[in-house]
Design a binder for these strands. Structure first.
Lengths: 142, 142
DNA sequence: GCAATATATTTAACATGTTAATGATTGCGA
DNA sequence: TCGCAATCATTAACATGTTAAATATATTGC
């Protein structure tokens, strides 16, 4: 019978720790703008892809729809994003970034790029790419 | 000036997705016992290390103390863990697993080991170890 | 031995994660 | 065209994540 792996080498715990480590400097940056990491992700995705339907946004941002609904609502309140309805098909609401949201992206882009580069340098470009590739291979576990 | 990386190759998002993928089968297993993944982590750590002080438990389980306080309280209600106070130093409360908690570990150990093996096989042992090593290198970002 | 300090834990408050239930809208078939 | 199914989104309810404030206990300095 297979043995339970030691929690010291547990992949779930390692993934949690890694995320915590990676996000710490990003959170520090975002706290000055009063943004959460999830709100930042929404802005980044909308900046990159333009207006998106909720389900598409959720896929790109790795958010569950119920969470995203709340997040987008609060971001709309703050004027960071806007909802727009399709003329004929009312199901197809799209969410888009506002000028205010865009300004936040612009203000933080340099610092965010610096943090990303720092992580990449810490691992080395080769190991960094390897990491992304292996993480990607964890899709479709049965 | 450095460029923001595409969100498609963003490490934070990749880590979130990976965790989601890895936890899905584990959550399915735990739902039958009515446990959350965090409660399972607490049991696993206490099984492996014996009674621990809150801060030690939190480090091993990758939980923040405020979350852990609530989790342990609800687990104590259900009889899965117990708190015991140190004789002389009342700060040093320790948390330990109960027989009921131990039984849940035993009931799920085989299935959990199977899931872990499946993930390892999906990547291959070599890449699996590489993944853990690289994730570990993300400690101490500045 | 007492006040001040240091450390560890818990509470509080709000945001997000997660699953299940509800609601809204379109398209299809009788 | 009416109702029914399918799909997508939101709401609801509870658990956890996160930061800051409050609490508790022991230790230190005097």
């Amino acid at each position: 019978m297979k043995q339970l792996p030691s929690t010291q080498r547990s992949l779930p715990i390692a993934l949690i720790r890694a995320r915590e480590n990676v996000m710490t400097p990003i959170r520090q940056m975002l706290s000055e703008s009063g943004l959460t990491e999830q709100q930042w992700r929404v802005l980044r995705i909308l900046d990159e892809h333009g207006a998106l339907e909720p389900s598409q946004l959720a896929k790109h941002a790795a958010l569950l729809l119920p969470s995203q609904t709340r997040i987008v609502q609060s971001m709309a309140q703050k004027g960071l994003v806007e909802r727009r309805e399709h003329r004929n098909d009312r199901r197809r609401t799209v969410i888009e970034i506002t000028d205010v949201g865009q300004a936040i992206i612009n203000d933080n882009a340099a610092k965010a790029a610096e943090i990303a580069a720092q992580i990449r340098d810490k691992l080395g470009p080769r190991r960094f790419e390897t990491l992304l590739d292996i993480l990607d291979d964890l899709r479709d576990l049965e």
